[in-house]
Write a protein that binds this DNA or RNA. Structure first.
Lengths: 157, 157
DNA sequence: GAAAATCCTATCAATTCGATAGGATTTATA
DNA sequence: TATAAATCCTATCGAATTGATAGGATTTTC
């Protein structure tokens, strides 16, 4: 499962992608209130996202955070790796963060590893495609769909 | 990442599928030594696997554990759920273990949820297909492949 | 009845996780 | 140029989880 930290980070990023289109900085407290994230905790999260190069900030009065990369560049895979470490379910199939399994005798012929290697590839592929832009696009097309369904239901009545 | 417990469980199950084909019980200590798992820890793991119906046991002298289901029936998805809980990365897309996200305003139109729902489906599908039989099959075909490669390399020399 | 196996509950130490505290630093602006 | 308002940064905390162990109860074979 995602850690709360990662979930908060994703929510904050999507919020910024939505609200700060023109690159205007948004204050921490505004994000915290809108997304229901503990203020101080969010502060630490945004700091890490800045160090990772996804966000940038302006200090002082009228300061705040804004996207440093485009919504098309920022993807869930990178965010997850930043806060939760490897996406792989076993260290021996991790891309960054690779580590040998201690018990494993022969990695090359391990059937378990083979299975988890496939899972990792699939997952990373999907999460790389899951950019902020993609997430917003999905949510908008879902809203449209639901709207259509409600209309159809009303007509039926 | 998989917990150590789940990894141990998978290793023990694969071992049993390999070594106890005729349904003969295998002692905990033998599995523990072969797979490099702390004896007492493994004891607790096998107990849980029995309670879940995957294993059965015989007590007393010449007792031990053996598969209760076939190697084709026992799959990684079920083992992971047993020890690590949901396979989904967000509680709101979990199959068993579903839970609402607290902050989420509208689950139906959440782009984040949509992404993680896709990931979950893919992952569960792959892990359901990853039965003990499939794992053993993969490891054998990998051994064959590696053998072939070494032969080819020798010939070249 | 003794040996040898599983069964079962309780507990422990270390780590991780979610969160907070408190002040240092920077910047806009009145 | 002082002050208000924002981020920056490090330290710390309590609770939960994780990996592992202890110790004896129970069952079965011979």
């Amino acid at each position: 499962m995602l850690s709360r930290k990662t979930k908060y980070a994703i929510n904050a990023l999507v919020y910024l992608a939505r609200e700060s289109k023109n690159g205007e900085p948004v204050q921490i407290s505004r994000i915290a209130e809108s997304e229901n994230i503990p203020r101080k905790f969010l502060e630490a999260i945004l700091l890490e996202l800045r160090h990772a190069g996804m966000l940038n900030s302006r200090k002082g009065k009228s300061g705040g955070y804004y996207l440093q990369q485009t919504p098309e560049e920022i993807n869930i895979a990178d965010v997850m790796r930043l806060f939760d470490g490897p996406i792989a379910l076993l260290p021996c199939v991790a891309y960054k963060y690779y580590e040998r399994c201690d018990e494993c005798i022969d990695e090359e012929t391990c059937g378990i590893r083979s299975v988890f290697s496939d899972v990792r590839s699939e997952t990373v592929k999907a999460l790389k495609l899951a950019t902020l832009a993609e997430i917003i696009k999905r949510s908008e097309s879902l809203k449209k769909e639901i709207g259509m369904q409600k209309k159809a239901l009303k007509k039926k009545k």
